[in-house]
Design a binder for these strands. Structure first.
Lengths: 179, 179
DNA sequence: GTCTATATACAGATAGAC
DNA sequence: GTCTATCTGTATATAGAC
């Protein structure tokens, strides 16, 4: 049933965000879903298949969320704030799925790495377009959006150690200061 | 001998940077050092001991490098450029050890997590002091240094996927634009 | 210090019954 | 679809000889 498969993807997503790809085992995943690990293989023959599908779903959902922000908020300031909220949803204790996978990208197949690259490229493009609506502040929109995306991923990464929102809050303050 | 122990730490550091804590095994580590895994346990009884010592050495060396920058360069611009070079030394294919450990921090013991926190705090403080020497540019030195540290870690993380210096280069351009 | 040998646990994956 | 049973490989870790 699609229900079981979705449940497995949901658990896997959270586990990877918390413990990484190597921290996710078919056995634990199955136990949490109250089935056996061999049944997990029925839905995802190889672990790489699971990783790919989880990444696909996560990035698709993220892009949809960006689209929804565009519809709900017309002002750049609100849009940036909404993006910050998206990132903050991960805390405490979780990292952006794509950030985690990027850290472990040496162990991913090319298909999944392509999804990762696309995630970063598309998110940066979205940021650039939002920034283009702001009054000019020295840096180019292309450059500033790259820096902001980097700082969002890095802040979430570092905040994970203590479970606080310390760095993410500073990034948010900085973004608000751009206006 | 201290020589063997140092060799093991050196291999372990690079392996963690490339593949993470879970990608490092005593067996592979031993093979690369041409000894047996039981001999690795002679130097590091538990894997957590190895992780801790590797982290201690890495952070100490990093702080020493910052100190050396202070001695060699007196101008903020040069100092920031030298820090960028430190970060770039990791590429291609490697991530900042502390960034990688931060991603996997759920699986670390408290002693090692403390080293991580200290690494980020000290590096941010160094950045803040450098920025305080710059002409004011809107953001506070405390806030801007947090954002810059975040962006450095995030840029290195994302650049690892493709093995390019794309995001790190944008961060560098942004930093140079601060002056 | 380094080895062989081994204990124990867990990983991903498959075969075949129901 | 889900199960039991099992294969094969690898992980951390230890005991004890040399």
């Amino acid at each position: 049933m699609a229900q079981t498969k979705n449940h497995l993807k949901s658990i896997a997503t959270r586990t990877i965000q918390e413990k990484g790809v190597n921290g996710l085992s078919f056995r634990d995943l199955a136990a949490e879903a109250n089935i056996k690990s061999s049944s997990v293989h029925y839905y995802f023959p190889q672990k790489a298949d699971l990783i790919y599908e989880v990444t696909k779903e996560y990035t698709d959902a993220f892009f949809q969320a960006l689209h929804k922000i565009d519809q709900l908020s017309k002002h750049s300031v609100e849009r940036l704030d909404a993006l910050l909220d998206l990132y903050k949803k991960n805390l405490p204790g979780r990292f952006c799925l794509c950030g985690m996978l990027a850290a472990e990208s040496n162990q991913l197949d090319n298909k999944t790495k392509d999804l990762l690259s696309r995630f970063f490229v598309k998110t940066q493009k979205w940021l650039r377009e939002v920034i283009e609506d702001l009054p000019s502040n020295g840096a180019t929109p292309a450059g500033l959006s790259s820096v902001l995306l980097s700082s969002l991923e890095g802040a979430l990464l570092m905040d994970g150690v203590k479970g606080k929102e310390k760095y993410l809050t500073e990034v948010q303050k900085f973004i608000r200061g751009l206006v």
